[in-house]
Simulated assay, not measured.
Amino acid sequence: MTSPSRVCVVAAGGTGGHMFPAQALAKVMASRGWKVILATDKRGQKYAQDFPAQKVVPLHAATGTGPVGMIKAGFAIIKGVAQASTTFKNIGCDVVVGFGGYPSAPALTAALATRRATVIHEQNAVLGKTNRFLAASVDYVAAAFPNVGRAPKSVADAIHVVGNPVRPDIRALFDRAYKAPKDNGPIRILVTGGSQGARILSEETPKALAALPADIRSRLVVSQQARFENIATAKKIYAEAGIQAEVEQFFDDMAKRLSDAHLVIGRAGASTCSELAVAAMPSVLVPLKIATDDHQTLNAAVLVDAGAARRIAEDDFSAAALVDVLAPILAEPKTLQSMSDAARGVAIVDAAERLADLAEAAAAARYG
């Protein structure tokens, strides 16, 4: 058991995509006897209530565009670095683990300036700006996917692929057996699109499912997350096609819906791709084309290349294109089963533990 006096600062903020993996790491570090401190920005504080940290340290951080915006962001980060340095001096800090995004910059910069152990974790298949800027200076660079883009040459060959920590209820799905649809039995489809729903999926997916051959369409049971303005139309399309469907803006029981589903249609965010792998779930992915550095396409590549998913570029996505992909998959249960097996094969179920091992290794190398 690690000494309780050891302090791990988890630097994350902004979005759930950064905060959820950070929370998973914090739980593991706390279970190993570390004192966990969360360093975050104003947006990250809304996730702090359930975060397993003994202390939450709000830091100034910002990003900006244009000369004025960049100057303001620079002053905010400088202030955040000073705050982090004071915190480290007062409460100690053995290792800082940053999860990317500008909210992680002040704590990591302060740690580097005071020669403390540092680790960064990249959730996407492309290093984000903050992680790209700091990668050559930190002790270890950890990544969720093996195909890491935009990595500095000096660290490209030394990246540790640890996976993306997923929520415990999703992780538990790895231990259950995927069951392909039975002959003439229901085919359960889960349609997601991020926390706000994706317009293109909200609009085109109901049309596609309604256009499937009658023998497939009659067996469909659909759970669809949709934008509020698209819900009524989607429900109408499903009703007219005789498809049993539940359409809502948000589902708060995603683990159960994943467990029940036979196929997922959705975007290719880092958390989504990692959860699909751990849940051994076949999928059709439509990467967000405006994602920075096209990182969603690269996120999806791990599943697509393994045979676990089919990918449709957003510019090519339509109801007809989706029908062309779905029809042969849903007509053959063996295809769904093989896709599930492929997803399971690329899953990294112990990502949080692997990242915790790396954080402890960084601290041990620095302090012995």
Rank of each mutant, 00 (worst) to 15 (best):
A210T: 09
G14V: 08
I348C: 09
A226R: 03
N90D: 15
R188Y: 02
R188M: 06
L355R: 15
M70Q: 15
F75D: 00
L212V: 07
L38Q: 05
L59Q: 01
A309T: 01
A177R: 11
A84D: 02
L336K: 02
D41K: 11
A364L: 14
R217A: 10
L276N: 00
P52V: 11
V302H: 01
Q296E: 13
V286P: 00
F228R: 08
A22W: 06
P328N: 10
V325N: 01
G266V: 01
P52T: 06
R311P: 00
P146I: 08
G197A: 07
D341S: 12
P181K: 08
N124D: 14
I290R: 14
G368R: 11
A241V: 11
R150W: 04
I120H: 04
T292D: 00
I216K: 01
H262G: 09
A177G: 00
E314H: 08
A320S: 14
S318T: 15
R32F: 04
P52K: 07
A245D: 04
A239K: 12
P168M: 11
T292F: 14
L212S: 04
S271Y: 05
G80F: 15
E360C: 02
S5E: 15
Y178E: 06
A180W: 06
A61C: 09
L127T: 04
I187F: 07
G194R: 02
A111C: 11
G100W: 13
V304N: 09
V349Y: 04
P21I: 01
V57S: 12
F228H: 10
K27G: 10
R43E: 13
K256W: 08
K55C: 13
L209D: 08
H60R: 14
G14Q: 03
I159G: 01
L285M: 12
R116Q: 12
T40I: 05
R310L: 01
L263S: 08
I187M: 08
